[in-house]
Amino acid sequence: MVRRISQMAKLLIGVWMAGVIFAMFLIIPQYEGLGDAGRIIIMHVPTAWVSVLAFAVSAFYSGMYLWRRRPSDDDRAVAAAECGFLFTVLATVTGAIFSQVVWGIYWNWDPRQTSIFVLLLIYAAFFALRAAIDPMERRRRLGAVYSLFAFVTVPFLVFIAPRLADSTLHPNCAFLPGSQCDGIVLSEGRIGLLGDRKIRLLALNQQGDIITAAVEVSEPGLTSSAILEPTFSLAEGRSLDEPHFPAVRFRLALEQVDLTTGNVRLNMHAPGTGTIDNPRTFFTFMASNLGFTMLFVWMLQMRSTLLGVSWKLEEREGALI
């Protein structure tokens, strides 16, 4: 009976994910500014979420192993870390594709890309450490301790570090409500960094209630520059014209103007802002999160079973020799 339910659940994962793929391409609407390429968010964010979940599960079972010393806990910890690594790679690859579409380059060493790369290195070191230690008990013990320490870095690298950076192109503001992308405050003649673009506020011009900022935007590497002129309505208290940065789909917005101090707040607006406000997109997005989570649970169970079987076989062979 249990086996039958288990088989049904696995079949459900297959059908569920097929449904998510169908909805991703054929049900949800195109994203403003991104077109069809923006659909990748339905895969990108859930894989990133599941990788965090997997690393948390790995840390949990590592702790359980150190407490109870059951090999099955170690098997689950390793299996979860492997799944986490795999899903992190998927998130990185889908993110790089998104990056190519939006920023015009696959890899930009953006704070988000750098932090995920460091995370991959930390967990690659975990597997290298385990492979380098022969005595099984010692391998499990040190691996569990390392896994616990590795997980401490996960919230920092995934959630905190990219938000600490003032200059990230990653569209946190677009997809994660509550994320703060405050932009930068400049006065005339001052230089700042927005994303990986150096910007300089050249002048402010007022015509009635409309403020126009002349902003020099330099490409990464300072190879070329352009003058953009975002505008702000004093009467309505909001930005009006938001010109595109050269060669990318982000827009430059004049969000605040303080005429008394001469300071203005400039920010980068990502395409796709408010993407998951659309109900079809929102439900597909949540279904994808659920589908990837179920897939992770299945893979975790399967991989830990395989690890358990291989250890058992090794033990029996060892006992014979």
Binding site: A18, I21, F22, M24, F25, L26, Q30, D36
Partner: peptide, 16 residues
């Protein structure tokens, strides 16, 4: 559905 181009169908088939 109508706004999707042929490339989306190809991507859908490949992903599936």
């Amino acid at each position: 559905m109508m706004e999707s181009s042929a490339a989306v169908y190809v991507a859908f088939i490949v992903t599936l």
